[in-house]
Simulated scan of single mutants.
Amino acid sequence: MPAVNLRHAVRAIVLDEDDCILLCRFEIPEPAGAVVWAAPGGGIEPGETPLAALHRELQEEVGLAVRGDPPHVWHQEVVAPGHAAGYDGVINDYFLVGTARFNPRGTLSDDELAAENISGLKWWHPREVASYDGPDLFSPRDLAALLTALITSGVPTHPVLLGL
């Protein structure tokens, strides 16, 4: 069986004092022009640790400087050719970052964000995610239920394994 080439990435579940989550609006051009709301984060560069990548990505995308090492709360593996350009799928590790509400603006320019398919940032309450009935998707798809469980039960002893 051939080796599977997965993109390793980190994502931050950035929650404010009202349990709202900060999400990036990704406009995915292929295959069907989908819009997906997902946690900020991105690929781990060669030689970089997951936490170093998390710190870098949050500074670049939303302008949040993270102190310390946030807890690892979710783990996701998606093996699906085409899910991540140039890869057979993705591994996402999610870390919980609590913060006071802020106006997100990272170090990347609008053009640099657009090159990463990011077209906006928005704070969402879990109820808004659960009741959303528009055409956009959320990643992971069951984000509202996962957030509610995380907020209600707190940090899990081991990262929760996620589906798509």
Rank of each mutant, 00 (worst) to 15 (best):
L6A: 02
L137C: 09
T148S: 12
A32T: 08
C20D: 13
G154H: 06
T99K: 03
W74E: 01
D136E: 15
N92C: 10
L23P: 01
A84V: 15
L22P: 04
D142I: 10
L108S: 05
I13H: 14
D136L: 03
D111E: 15
A149V: 10
G41V: 02
L150M: 03
N117Q: 12
G41W: 00
P71Q: 03
A9W: 05
P70T: 01
P2T: 03
I151C: 07
A38Y: 02
G134D: 07
D133N: 14
P70I: 02
A145I: 09
E61N: 05
C20E: 14
A85S: 14
G41Y: 00
H75I: 04
L162Q: 07
L113G: 06
T148Q: 13
V129E: 01
L162G: 05
D88C: 05
I13W: 15
P156M: 12
T99H: 05
R127M: 08
E77V: 15
E60Q: 15
V97Q: 06
L96V: 12
Y87K: 07
L161S: 13
G43V: 07
D110K: 12
A65D: 11
A115M: 13
L121D: 03
L161I: 11
A3W: 05
A38N: 03
L121W: 11
D110I: 15
P50L: 00
P29K: 02
G41N: 01
A12F: 13
W37E: 00
A3Q: 07
E57C: 14
L58P: 07
P126N: 04
H55G: 08
R11H: 06
P81C: 07
E48Q: 12
G33S: 02
V62M: 05
D133W: 09
P70K: 03
L137E: 14
S153N: 14
A39M: 11
D18E: 15
T107S: 15
M1I: 00
W74L: 05
S153Q: 14
F138P: 01
P40M: 08
D93M: 06
A80M: 15
A38F: 01
H75E: 13
V66W: 02
L164K: 12
A12S: 15
R67E: 13
P71W: 01
G163L: 13
A100W: 09
L161F: 07
C24R: 09
V155A: 06
P156T: 12
Y132P: 00
V14F: 12
V97Y: 05
R7N: 10
W74D: 00
E77K: 13
G47S: 01
P70V: 01
E17F: 13
Q76E: 15
A9S: 13
L150I: 03
P29V: 03
E17W: 13
